[in-house]
Amino acid sequence: MKPLVTTALILLTLLEASCATTLPGPGAVNTAPPLSYETYALGAEKPEALLVALHSSGSTPESWDASVKALDIAVRVVLPRGSRPRREGFTWFPEDHEKKDGAGKTADVERVAAQLADLIREVRRAHPEIRRVAVTGFSYGGDLAWMLALRHPELVEVAVPMGTRLLGEPARSLPPAHRVLVLQGEEDAIIPVQQTLARVADLKAVGVPIDVRTYPGVGHDAAPQLVEDWQVFLRQVLQAP
């Protein structure tokens, strides 16, 4: 399926900030570099569903093209790009991100998630027909997809984070109609599957509408069965009345 709207590259300078445990205060400035993104529509001129797909570290937005076009549904796609060059692609967080403790990592993710939240608002202002928003991502992109669902439930109804650490604690309740599905390889050497299972169980216990699917023999990778389940789930939630 070919895009029905010409791709546009839009540069946003975003001025929200956040910290590890609180939301941005008045007048706070987000010091993370500005983000750019690409957007196009599939299946209709004005789709009512929006899918924001976030690439992994060292990758590019274009890595999502084949998967999102294979959804074969009416959807507007937004593909943000991490602001920091890494290897052959881009990344989202500073070089010292992995050296930080849990609070420091969470703060990094919250800062970029605040930028992405503004990006979603910008897209929705330009396309007021949008009624449902889903976010997804792998690895660092998965961390951001989860943080958007956690910190910005007024913007995001559905999240599919993959290979994620699920950083941050709920500061408020997520609406029960929201959906979060975590996809995780059981042989992931970066994100241990038992850690993910325990984290999801803890979140469910406090009322977060979250589920997890794991995949035997799959590492820190988007294996074919994982991608197929990702597509089936998104088709269902993005086409729901």
Rank of each mutant, 00 (worst) to 15 (best):
L148E: 10
A159H: 05
V156D: 03
A222E: 13
C19I: 11
D229T: 06
L23A: 13
P176E: 07
V135M: 05
A171N: 10
V52N: 01
V212Q: 02
H152W: 12
S63A: 12
A223F: 04
L119Q: 07
A198P: 06
Q195T: 12
E228G: 05
V75K: 11
S36I: 11
L15N: 15
L12S: 06
A145R: 03
V77H: 08
Y37K: 01
E186V: 13
M147Y: 10
P128C: 07
L144A: 07
R81D: 04
V133A: 00
R111L: 13
V182T: 03
R151E: 08
V133M: 03
K2H: 10
K99W: 09
T39G: 08
A126G: 10
D221V: 15
I73Q: 04
H55W: 01
L23N: 09
W64Q: 03
Q184F: 09
M147T: 15
K100H: 08
A53R: 00
V29P: 00
T7E: 12
A189W: 09
A198R: 14
L50A: 03
D202G: 15
V206E: 09
G168E: 01
A53M: 08
Q231H: 15
L226A: 06
A41Y: 00
T31G: 07
S83M: 13
P85L: 05
P33M: 09
A134W: 02
R121Y: 00
R151T: 11
T106A: 06
H97V: 01
G102S: 13
L119G: 03
L11K: 14
E187N: 14
T6M: 12
E45V: 13
E129Q: 09
V133R: 03
P24F: 00
L9R: 14
A44H: 06
A28N: 06
E95I: 12
W64R: 00
L4K: 00
K99H: 10
H178F: 03
P170Y: 08
Y140I: 09
L183S: 04
V237N: 02
A114F: 06
P176M: 00
V5M: 14
R81S: 07
S59E: 01
D202A: 15
T164F: 02
V206I: 15
A205E: 06
G43E: 00
P192L: 06
P176H: 02
K204H: 11
V158P: 04
E62W: 13
S59V: 06
A70Q: 15
A107W: 03
E95K: 14
K100C: 05
Y40N: 00
L203E: 00
V156Y: 08
G142S: 06
G141M: 04
Q195W: 09
F233V: 03
V158C: 08
F233C: 02
T31L: 15
V206C: 11
S83R: 12
R179L: 00
T91S: 13
S18K: 10
A114K: 05
